[in-house]
Write a protein that binds this DNA or RNA. Structure first.
Length: 199
DNA sequence: GCTGGGATCGCCT
DNA sequence: GGCGATCCCAGCG
């Protein structure tokens, strides 16, 4: 049983530091009594109203982004390109809208289940992208607004565990797939990892 | 009310 | 490397 989840205070740091600190942590899901998860090897930070790439740009709120403007430590899951989903963790206090996008995992648990969900046995491709890891982990829009901190209960089925192995270097670079704010160094990944979405 | 673009992925050449 | 799939929402009228 996973119990040592991260605490709310983890998300109270400076946004870019939170994004960087998530590297090496374990993200897991325990859905339908079948756990799976992996080590976070790639993240991107989306700032609040001032970040043109952020859904919180101009502090515009919609039904879709409501969770993004909620309290820290909750999952923000949204659909992209009509067919994929992205998973974020809200890292700002209520009303601000900063979040960290989880972009890639090194698979560690429930590999067979993730292979089944992804229809591939290629380990390095299982979770090497935001849409891929969401599919592999069984994360759906139903998990939008799920707490990732402190308590573990029947309704909180996603968890984050502190990094156990921190013997890696982190590369800081620009975010992927955006046009606005494309020059900002808000992306982090594990140097040399086989499991990142792109160099 | 219509149109175009988006924090993607997998298949094609 | 290029492209289509396919939904949400912003911008325009």
């Amino acid at each position: 049983m996973k119990v040592a989840r991260v605490r709310r205070s983890f998300f109270e740091g400076e946004p870019l530091e939170v994004g960087r600190s998530l590297i090496g942590m374990e993200l897991g899901s325990d859905l339908s009594k079948s756990g799976c998860g992996g080590l976070i090897v790639e993240t991107e930070v989306y700032m609040g109203p001032e970040d043109r790439a952020s859904h919180a740009w101009k502090a515009r709120r919609t039904a879709r982004t409501e969770v993004l403007f909620g309290p820290r430590g909750y999952s923000y899951v949204f659909q992209i390109y009509g067919m994929h989903y992205c998973f974020n963790v809200v890292s700002s206090p209520e009303g601000v809208g900063e979040a960290v996008l989880i972009r890639a995992l090194e698979p560690t648990e429930g590999i067979e289940l993730m292979e089944k969900r992804r229809h591939t046995y290629v380990r390095r491709s299982l979770c090497s992208g935001p849409g891929k890891l969401v599919r592999a982990m069984g994360i759906t829009r139903a998990l939008n607004g799920t707490s990732l901190i402190d308590t573990y209960s029947a309704s909180t089925r996603l968890y984050l565990l502190p990094a156990t192995d921190t013997a890696f270097d982190i590369i800081t670079t620009t975010r992927i797939g955006i046009t606005q704010g494309a020059d900002l160094p808000y992306r982090f990944y594990v140097k040399g990892s086989l499991y990142i979405s792109r160099k």
